[in-house]
Structures are given as C-alpha cells and as structure tokens.
C-alpha cells in the first residue's frame, strides 16, 4: 500500500492539516483492503457459487437451475458416507502417527540439537523443495513389491500383522490402506513438526529445572511441565495435519486401491468425470462442515485440558 502516515515538518503550505490526519486513521483499513478483496473474490464468491450449485437440479446437457433441492445432500451422503468416514479415519490415524513421529523429532531439535538446530529444521522443510505429487509418486517406488521395505515386512512377519489388522490384503504394501496412511503421515509431517518445534522451543529451560528441583523425575517433569506447555503446538500441529489430510485425494489415488477411496477423490470424480456438479458441491459442503464441527469440538476439549 502506498498510504503512508503523514510526515510532520517538510513545509506543505497547500495541504491542509486536518484532512491528512483523518486519512491517517484510515490506514489500517486500507491495509486490510487487498486481503479482504482477495477473500471476497477467491473465497466468499466461490463459496456462494458452490452453495447455490449444491441446491441446483438439472443435467450437464440441459443446464442447471436453482431449485433449492435439499435432497441432493441426502442422496450424496447415502451414496458416499463410507468414503467420508474412511477419510476421517485415515486422517485421524495419520495425525496420531504424525504426532508420535513428530513430537520426539521436534523435542530433539528444540532441546538437544545444539548447533545442528538450523540444519535439522531445514531438513524438515526440505521435502517442500519438490512437489507434493513427486513425493507421493516416490512412495510408489519405496513400497514397490520388489523393494527393500516390502522385503523387510515379509521377513519380519510385520506383513502378517498388517494383514490381520486388514491394513493390507495380499503380500504387498502398495495399493493398500497402509500405504495411503503412510503417504498421508509423511506428506503432512512438516506441518506437525514446525508448530510443535515453535512451542517447545519457547519453553523456559528454568521451568524444567524448577520441576526437577521440586522432586519431579525427568518423566514426571515432562508430563507435568513440558507436555502441558507444548499443548498449543500439539493443537496447531494436529489441526494442520488433520484438515488437509481429510480432504486429500492424491495419496489414496496413487498409493491406494478402489477400496481405499477417500472423499476428496469422490469429489474430484463427481466434478471432473461424472460431471454431477450438485452432488460434488453437496459433498464439498458436507466435508467442510464435518471438519468444522470436528475441529470446534477438538479445540474446545484441548482448550479446557490446557487449563487443568
């Protein structure tokens, strides 16, 4: 923005002082303008369009008309509820796995890495230098039937364990729910690690010393001091993982099979192949609302936990 605060001094006889002052108070609003305009054009308008589309009837050949047909939601849900629930199941699993992997990683970087801290942080972000698609495709190679990972799983009977959990069907890892969850966990791990790191790094080391001084063993000190103080990072990290993971359609497409279809894939198909716009729009809205509700409940629970 070019709206700068008026500079005192510098003789400007023509410019009256009063209006300049009033304009200065508008600066915050002017600064908001580009962001608001962006949101209106690229978020609010498409939302309204999507909402209206979900309530339309018709066909691609004859055109669609707004008929306020609420029934589309019911039809879409009865047809695709299993994909919706599966998406949340996969996303939740990937989030929990991400937390289990990410917390120790963030903890180590924050407290134990010393001068390697920045190097390790760059390594966490490094995957972003290649595209999401390429990274997921790479997992196809990693999990391929003749690869070392599959060999290891077969040799150690981990494959049998996964099979008994219905995470794989045959003797392969690719094209299984296991592969999809692994892909989701991997792809969203940086979103978990960075907020965790940020909140762990802020913890005053003297609080941990005080914990030890007050008879807390290292594990108790972690449970009573470090963990509660890192909760903001846990909440942020899990949200940043869960939300995009629930709507993801690349991992299930490239690493899964027809029985691992996630809701994002369904929406993608309805929009671009079946060309059933109302159903696709209704599913998009349902997904969004479901995530909103889940997140609201989660944040509220986590928020009260923090106060205990």
């Amino acid at each position: 923005m070019t709206a700068t605060v008026h500079v005192p001094g510098g003789s400007m006889p023509a410019a009256p002082v009063e209006p300049r002052k009033r304009r200065a108070s508008k600066v915050p609003y002017l600064l908001l303008l580009p962001g608001v305009a962006w949101l209106l054009v690229f978020f609010v308008a498409p939302m309204i369009f999507l909402a209206s589309q979900s309530l339309q009837t018709g066909s691609i050949e004859q055109g669609y008309a707004l008929t306020w047909h609420i029934g589309t939601y019911g039809d879409a849900l009865s047809a695709f509820h299993s994909q919706l629930f599966r998406s949340f199941g996969y996303a939740a699993t990937a989030t929990v796995l991400g937390l289990l992997v990410g917390y120790p990683l963030a903890y180590t970087i924050a407290f134990k890495a010393g001068r390697w801290k920045n190097v390790l942080l760059v390594l966490v972000i490094a995957p972003f230098f290649t595209s999401f698609l390429i990274r997921t495709l790479a997992w196809q190679t990693i999990l391929s039937s003749d690869g070392p990972v599959v060999g290891f799983f077969r040799a150690t009977h981990l494959m049998d364990l996964l099979r008994s959990l219905h995470l794989v069907a045959g003797n392969d890892l690719l094209s299984t729910p296991f592969a999809v969850v692994m892909g989701l966990t991997y792809n969203f791990l940086p979103f978990m690690v960075l907020p965790l790191y940020a909140s762990l790094e802020r913890i005053d080391i003297r609080l941990l010393e005080a914990g030890g001084d007050l008879y807390a063993r290292p594990f108790t000190a972690f449970r009573k001091v470090t963990w509660p103080l890192s909760l903001p990072g846990v909440v942020a990290g899990t949200l940043l993982t869960f939300i995009p993971a629930a709507g993801d359609y690349i991992n299930s497409k490239l690493l899964g099979n027809t029985s691992t279809t996630m809701i994002g894939q369904v929406i993608d198909g309805q929009f671009l192949r079946v060309l059933d716009y109302p159903t696709a729009a209704a599913l998009s809205f349902t997904l969004m609302l479901a995530i909103l509700v889940i997140v609201a409940v989660y944040v509220r629970r986590a928020g009260t936990e923090e106060l205990v």
């Binding site: 003297r206 010393e209 030890g212 001084d213």
Partner: peptide, 15 residues
C-alpha cells in the same frame, strides 16, 4: 539427582 536432594531453590526469575 536434583529431584532426590532435600534442597529447594527460589529461582532468579521465579520460574
């Protein structure tokens, strides 16, 4: 270990 010592500390910035 510090957590076993019969000693307590008032820290500089209270902690």
């Amino acid at each position: 270990k510090p957590y076993r010592r019969p000693v307590n500390t008032v820290f500089q910035n209270y902690a």
